[in-house]
Amino acid sequence: MSEHLLEVNHLKKYFKTGKGTVQAVDDISFTLDAGKTLGLVGESGCGKSTTGRTILRLLEPTDGQVIFEGKDIAKLKPAEMRRMRQEMQMIFQDPFSSLNPRKTVEELIGEPLKWFKVHKTKAEQKEHVAKLMDIVGLAPRLANVYPHELDGGRRQRIGIARALALDPKLIVCDEPVSALDVSIQAQVLNLLKELQKEYNIAYIFITHDLSVVNHISDDIAVMYLGQIVEKAPSKELFTNPTHPYTKALLSAIPIPDPDLQVEQIPLKGEISSPINMKRDCHFAARCPYATEVCLASTPELVDRGNEHFVACHLF
């Protein structure tokens, strides 16, 4: 038995394509405790969304373990997995395509309650949905409205409300605010934070936006081409970034102060192809400090103290 809520061990997800095998998630391990947030950051195509979906088994893992409350969910039978889904929910990136346009707000939020037959009568379910709408700040008058009549922020609140409906212990948030205006982003992030405090939910927060992840996460894992290159508590990562990729990312955050001069670390080149990758440091091709060692083998994620893990040959 593990003491962690979620333990991911050597998770791999490969996709076979005509050109070769895409190593979308390549040997990822981390742990997450109840009520905590792990931020998963990285650029487009680095496998962060695939990681989230594989943990929830929306995609079948190629290899590795996903231990949730002591059970390896990668080995559960379909019926057991369905039951397990009550404990682990997901908030999707696009609040436009993730809501069925034919269903009203009330039906959308009530959907998970319906699948698990939480309530015996429709009246009970209606009451529960009304409570959820109140929690996420949706006015009761919106119950019979269709999602296309609402703005992005309200739609995303629907997504949050239904993720909450079954009292899950873990929610995977797949870029929940990247489709929203900046002003709405803050509202939604604060809502997520409040909900976490109140219901002790653990989040896996997937995003490409570093200022967002700093705001919400306890720990941050930086991904590059299917691997975690650096993982540390938020504060530690922001004050003491170690991996050259993390450094470059952090230097790219705009700071609203014209007098402040920050040294920019521009990255040269393109992200390498994730198909049939060699056993080298995947970042070596773009790394300003790369040496021969980096081309020879893939660096391991090693603890540098203070729960700060780095996968780099240079440190």
Partner: peptide, 14 residues
Amino acid sequence: NNEYVEAAKAMGAS
């Protein structure tokens, strides 16, 4: 291929 189908699966629908 709509995301709401995946969302339904994530919510536990058969």
